[in-house]
């Protein structure tokens, strides 16, 4: 197993804690009804990884800025991420998030959806503070970056849900990579890197290498997530095991299985995917998982994640070539092995 140093985990925790305080400052603690604030605070109080704000803050520091300059942006990232999670859990009807019942299972679907909307609105408040801290020009640029990211993310989510609804079985790894660029990478890694570098460098940065690094890093993250969904511990990973198979998600693992399976196995998989979710029994799910192992689909995805991570390591050198060595720069570099070694 690839190891991740305790120093790195301590630094991640430190960035996460700083961002958590900032995030909570943008959630109203008075004057708003508990029907909104209580569910909105629920996920924020659970211990998430805090990757997105940490990446944004560390990149800003690495490029010469101070964490306080990027704090509203980092908070907006976490608020928007949490909003996406709430709605994602409703769309997938997931049972668990971070080891506890999902928001809609606790508060009901309607209040959960509204809380997700509220979290996105709170993110707008955080972004608005950029004008005061960074000036109108840079704040406007960050707004444009968020605008582009948000459009990519909701489009990616729509594509994934559409593939499931239409029972699409004709997809390739290209389709999958394009999907995860939209639905995951842009808001998880690409945007945090881009806005962190913009703020830290006062806009004097070439963002193209950052996009390359961000995509490889985010893809490694997503593929690892797909693997953890199948093989991770329920207690540590915090979601219901085999949830992606139950939902019929078109992960890289499933696409590999569809390509590698014998004709009879493929027929069985396609029959399974054509079922309504409620018809998918635990036995049927276990059989699909066994096929994924038998056909090397899980191993393929694990190697794919490692391959992408190797590319990310090379892309990091390019994106941070002119950035002097510092603890923040090292932290960002160490995110690469972390993405494929993490168990939650």
């Amino acid at each position: 197993m690839t190891t991740v140093g305790t120093d790195f985990l301590d630094e991640l925790e430190a960035y996460t804690e700083m961002a958590r305080v900032a995030v909570l400052s943008y959630v109203p603690d008075r004057g708003e009804t508990d029907y909104l604030v209580d569910p909105a605070l629920e996920y924020l109080g659970r211990s998430g990884k805090g990757l997105r704000p940490a990446l944004c803050l560390a990149t800003c520091e690495a490029f010469g800025g101070g964490v306080e300059e990027a704090m509203p942006t980092a908070a907006a990232l976490e608020l928007l991420h949490t909003a996406f999670l709430v709605h994602d859990d409703v769309e997938d009807d997931s049972e668990l998030r971070r080891g506890e019942p999902t928001l809609h299972r606790t508060f009901g679907r309607a209040l959960a959806i509204n809380a997700g909307d509220g979290l996105a609105v709170f993110a707008l408040g955080a972004l608005r503070e950029n004008e005061r801290r960074l000036g109108r020009r840079l704040a406007s640029r960050i707004w444009s970056e968020f605008d582009f990211m948000a459009r990519q993310t909701v489009e990616g989510q729509a594509i994934e849900l559409g593939w499931q609804r239409d029972s699409r079985n004709d997809l390739t790894p290209d389709d999958y990579l394009d999907l995860i660029m939209k639905k995951t990478c842009w808001y998880t890694t690409v945007l945090p890197l881009r806005v962190g570098a913009l703020i830290g460098s006062k806009r004097a940065v070439d963002l193209r290498p950052m996009l390359r690094f961000g995509f490889f890093l985010g893809a490694a993250f997503q593929i690892r997530d797909d693997v953890l969904n199948l093989t991770g511990s329920r207690e540590i990973y915090g979601k219901e095991p085999l949830g992606d198979i139950r939902e019929g998600k078109r992960t890289l693992i499933l696409l590999h299985l569809l390509a590698a399976a014998t004709s009879s196995d493929r027929e069985q998989v396609e029959h399974y995917l054509a079922m309504d979710r409620a018809e998918r029994s635990d036995t049927a799910i276990a059989e699909i998982f066994a096929m994924m192992q038998d056909h090397g689909s899980v191993a393929f995805a694990e190697e794919f994640a490692r391959g992408i991570a190797r590319s990310a390591a090379v892309a990091f050198d390019e994106a941070f070539a002119d950035v002097p060595e510092s603890p923040a720069r090292r932290f960002v570099r160490e995110l690469v092995p972390y993405m494929v070694a993490r168990d939650r």
């Binding site: 394009d178 794919f304 992408i308 590319s311």
Partner: peptide, 27 residues
């Protein structure tokens, strides 16, 4: 896989440059 990944990056590089028009100011 990695070849596909590289082409995804290139496609989005062009796309984001078009979408965020003042990017060249920051280059």
């Amino acid at each position: 896989g990695l070849f596909s990944a590289a082409t995804v990056v290139d496609r989005y590089t062009a796309m984001v440059d078009r979408a965020i028009v003042d990017d060249r100011l920051a280059s």
